[in-house]
């Protein structure tokens, strides 16, 4: 019984080691698996991972419309006070007052890219994009207003 355990120990050990070597041997012989990006050289054809988070943006469609209702869920979710939403009241054609955003202020220099604001947003108004070339000469340039000038909320988003 002891001998049987001993031999199966050795067999299983060798088998699992060979399994590992097969994997690394596969990587060694298949250069297509290489994931290194030679960054400044291939700046035009750079391929980043899908999960890479670089910056928060607010997508606008062709009519310069976004889907942000100004509910400030992202502002409350942010642990660092990165987001500041300044609201205003639009007057709808029916004469009703409607809350809307005046400025969505995003301070990239304070952002840890934790993705909490994206998950908090009920209307998918903001998203993460894989931009990473954030260097600027003046720190104030990192404070951005995400909604474009003259943009307004898309119809039907409450």
């Amino acid at each position: 019984m002891f001998l049987k355990d001993y031999i199966s120990d050795v067999y299983n050990g060798v088998a699992s080691l060979l399994k590992g070597m097969r994997k690394t041997g596969y990587y060694f012989t298949h250069s297509k698996e290489i994931i290194t990006e030679q960054y400044p050289d291939n700046r035009a054809t750079l391929k980043l991972a899908d999960r890479f988070k670089g910056e928060v943006v607010m997508p606008h469609d062709d009519n310069n419309e976004h889907t942000c209702t100004g509910c400030t869920a992202c502002e409350l979710a942010c642990p660092n006070g990165t987001i500041k939403i300044i609201t205003k009241f639009d007057v709808t054609p029916e004469g009703k007052k409607k809350k809307a955003i005046d400025a969505f202020i995003y301070r990239l220099e304070m952002c840890t890219l934790c993705n909490l604001c994206i998950t908090a947003c009920p209307s998918d108004a903001i998203k993460m994009v894989p931009n990473f070339e954030h260097s600027v000469f003046d720190r104030s340039k990192l404070t951005k207003v995400l909604n474009k000038p003259g943009s307004k909320i898309k119809e039907g988003i409450e």
Partner: peptide, 9 residues
């Protein structure tokens, strides 16, 4: 060899 095995250049 290390680079190739670790899928680097």
């Amino acid at each position: 060899v290390a680079a190739r095995i670790q899928i680097r250049l």
